[in-house]
Design a protein around this nucleic acid. Structure first.
Lengths: 171, 171
DNA sequence: AAAAATTGTAAAAATATTTTACACCATCGG
DNA sequence: CCGATGGTGTAAAATATTTTTACAATTTTT
């Protein structure tokens, strides 16, 4: 069971997406403004959010969209949010992605590309790395940063040199 | 000791950056084309890369820049790469960031903003999380994804329920 | 309401980590 | 060029963590 929440101030966009997104999601919830989004997120389980950046006609800085992205990420850091915008503003895109958005789609959009992106995100969400994989990767990162010096890498990681040494030998 | 590698096909940009970047880096290495970048990375320790996206005048898709980003990330996934572009192409920015670029700067650039971004990245690079912090965060993420169900979160993480239960109790 | 799943708890067994130790090798500075 | 320093590879005992197993109580699902 997967649900997507779509937030856009244009009714016609909501209705067309409502139909399209059933290709990927079991349930599509729509909102005309982001104001009540936090309540909706409390009331029901949402697996993905499609958030428009351009509320308030005439105000197209996208900053209100970024504000709501921030609010959402604060409470639900793990729900993937895809940003949606009619204006090719590179700065908003970069800031959005750095604030934790999962992807960025520009309007007018290509249905297939949009669906592919959403599917890819769902797929990535489904699998969660094991603790072992995560620790392994992080240890490797530390070793790289220390140019192979196990002693200082171990210190960085807050573990003993032996442990790091033994784990590296194993692989 | 920190070194930045700047790759841009315009000599005047290289010379002006060469001077500016000494504000943040001890050493600035410049390249007029990305072709030899991998050799340079093998020969000396580089701590950050500023990579222009628009090589070959007339070809401004940025795809060659993305190609080189990919090559660099393949060999050195942990060296932060900042993308640099004269064209506000949102798609290149999004793809670049998703491919692992640390940030994105558009030309013409503001010196102070550029320096601030580079400083922020260096600062972030300096500190490395301990293994404990990383595992803690990952466990929390799994629990969130499982809506608080410790049994299935533990299964996802590849550890026993007890271990997860005890670690959560500790905090 | 019954069945199934999850929690909270505990204790022993199995593993993993830290600590301590030491010979060996590399690199750096005088 | 040689001694000092710092890192490696190895090992064994002490300590800590994780897994396994178990069971009653509670929550969730059917």
């Amino acid at each position: 069971m997967s649900t997507i929440l779509v937030i856009d101030d244009k009714k016609e966009i909501l209705t067309s997406l409502e139909y399209l997104l059933t290709e990927v999601f079991d349930k599509v919830v729509t909102l005309e403004s982001p104001e009540t989004s936090l309540q909706v997120l409390m009331q029901q389980e949402i697996n993905m959010i499609l958030l428009d950046m351009n509320f308030h006609l005439g105000v197209n800085t996208g900053s209100e969209g970024l504000f709501w992205l921030e609010q959402i990420k604060k409470v639900h850091p793990d729900i993937p949010v895809v940003l949606f915008t009619a204006y090719g503003d590179i700065d908003i895109a970069v800031r959005g992605l750095k604030m934790g958005a999962a992807d960025f789609v520009t309007k007018p959009w290509d249905n297939d590309i949009l669906l592919d992106k959403l599917r890819a995100i769902m797929e990535k969400e489904r699998k969660m790395k094991t603790l072992e994989e995560v620790t392994e990767e992080h240890m490797q990162k530390a070793i790289d940063k220390c140019h192979g010096n196990l002693t200082s890498a171990a210190e960085m990681l807050g573990i003993s040199r032996q442990t790091l040494y033994n784990k590296m030998k194993k692989k």
